[in-house]
Design a binder for these strands. Structure first.
Lengths: 217, 217, 217, 217
DNA sequence: CATGAATGAGACTTCATTCAT
DNA sequence: GATGAATGAAGTCTCATTCAT
């Protein structure tokens, strides 16, 4: 049940609605990225989308709806990539790696949208916020399940207590790429970033573990 | 030389300025946390601080300045805690643990302020943004140095390439506690969170490392 | 090329823009005349013009722009009257008289606007002020040329040194009618005023000229 | 009866009041000249005068009062100069010349104050305005009397009808020097200006008078 | 379906004035 | 008599949203 927020549209022709909304998303992401959600006017979004303010409001009910459109676009992209993965045959650690990379790639492709979604979304009002958080939670749960799977297979060792945190960690590691991009992109390409992040998540600091250690004896 | 943004104040008495600004920070954090920076009016901040709108503007030059006040308060707190640590005699892994924990505790104590700073800060205008990013960078570099130190002592193994990323990772791990608090606080207390985060950052997923491996054989 | 200040308008329809701006000018002149520019609020101008404050700002960029609108209206009127004169066939003293009278009549017709322009204009900020002064200068030069022409024809005797001053004098003689109207209108009708002013400008005090003199001898 | 506007002062010591008010006038003239009356804050005047805002209000009742102080200073100066003239023994045309020159010199000396008075004064509220206009009227009447005197002596020929206008003309000729200074000072020094103005007022354009003409016959 | 002019609540900020110290 | 912190009314301008064409 892909719980899609019901955004009112005066226009009936669904094909047209979808097309126009794609335009809106593209325009909004660009504009929000440059000036932030609050500093961007609906007029600017309309203009960037190539139609008039009146037309914009034929396809949305309020400015907040534009944010939803952007959010859904982001989630849909990640979900789609994961669905493709379903058919691939990775398992164990490899599977984990693939799921993470798919997510990171998605974030990179939609970086502006993710950033916008990420920064502006939290200041929404109750109803709206709940919807977004629920989507976030769903993604976090996907990672949590994958971790549980890997644990079951014995390829990782992650206490049940730590598992939710780790799922969040992965999620945030992806978002980081957008909201710390001003610093990260000085050091890393997306490929390097993905490699290092996965490495770091897997192995940490390679501390001489005082506890479990060590092999023999 | 802690590069303090120069916020204009009409009032001369510095003692009073400091006191009033503390009130402003407290009020602003509370208000921004509830409604977000953009949705909070300056009047509301003034009211929450216990004085009139006119008085508020005797101590700041513009609404943005309030954000700076909040930022500085946050950075000052972390810095102060680190300074205390200076005199403690931790070394190696223990030292690293202490620096991280001090930061995490600071974030927890000022969680609302950190969240506000974190979410609203990025949508500032050029000049203002630069100031905040510079502060962020300085913190990241503190972690980077600590990591370099630990590396030199041989207690961790972190490639030079990965070091900046890891420093960011620690920083974000702290901020996470505020901006994903809606989810994290369901599972963890701050103590647990700190323990698990440090553990995770140190050891990752305890993957059976395919590469370096492995003891016997 | 009558260097028209570019006042931004959100509305595109030029026909409408012109019409609304006429309304604004009329309303502004009335309001400014009663309370002065600074004491009149934009809201009052909007109300007097018959639309909302929001609509007002669809046709101007700032309060100052209203003053420009008024100025242009005044200059345009005078210029238009002079253009009509072009085709008339006055020459010599008659021509001079006509140019001056046309100007005086214009001032009288738009007296409120002229007064407003006259009193409020000087306290504008750099850029804005320059624009108005340039227009004033242009008018002064028109008189200067007319005087030069008359001089060449030998119908007046005005040293080259005194010519710019005299042009200013005429200009001010017109403005006087608005800014000393509180006193002048007690004594004179506009017709009388014009007659006396021209007479005074032409003949001065009919002093027994001590210098040039005199007829015989 | 020099009808002095009663400006309230909390301070009783009259000597101190006078001294402080001199400071206020000087500071106000400078400030108003630079930024205009409305754009200048009372704080700025106080600062320029060398004391605090609180102290300023010990010597005036409201911002408007500062304008009165300036006005009175101007009128007092002119009046003082005329009083000196009383004792000189000029008569006829020479006397007229002296009265005008005294006025022009006064205007030049206090040019900033005159300009301020001139531009800002008209937008005052009823009561205040009346006071200033009355002062203006009194000055105009001085000129009118002088003209009547000269007429009686037969040194000028000015119809009774034209006399009030001419008195205004002289007054405005003085004020011109301040409010068209931006243009006039390019061409003339104050000495030249005075010479040319008097000449112009006396002789006009030296038109070949079509009417009265001419000496003989 | 598209347009864009109109609306007006509400935001930030200024500044004349007061009054306790 | 001097100070300057506090006040809050009021001003300019923005912008999400509507609706007649």
């Amino acid at each position: 049940m892909p719980s899609r927020k019901d955004i009112p549209s005066i226009v009936k022709n669904q094909r047209l609605v979808d097309q126009r909304r794609q335009q809106i998303i593209r325009a909004a992401v660009r504009a929000f990225h440059e000036k932030g959600y609050h500093r961007t006017t609906t007029r600017e979004v309309a203009a960037a989308a190539g139609f008039s303010i009146g037309t914009l409001y034929e396809y949305i009910g309020s400015k907040e709806d534009i944010l939803f459109l952007v959010c859904d676009a982001v989630y849909d992209d990640v979900t789609a990539r994961w669905k493709e993965l379903q058919q691939s045959d990775g398992t164990g650690l490899e599977r984990l790696r693939q799921v993470m990379e798919a997510y990171f790639r998605s974030v990179d492709d939609l970086q502006d949208a993710v950033l916008v979604m990420y920064q502006e979304t939290k200041s929404l009002s109750g109803d709206a916020l709940a919807y977004v958080l629920e989507k976030e939670t769903r993604m976090q749960q996907v990672f949590q399940q994958e971790l549980a799977e890997a644990e079951k297979l014995g390829v990782i060792h992650l206490s049940e207590e730590a598992r939710p945190l780790f799922a969040h960690q992965i999620l945030v590691a992806g978002q980081m790429w957008t909201f710390r991009r001003w610093a990260l992109s000085k050091h890393y390409s997306i490929d390097t970033y993905i490699r290092l992040q996965i490495d770091q998540l897997f192995y940490g600091l390679r501390v001489q573990d005082e506890r479990k250690e060590t092999c023999g004896s």
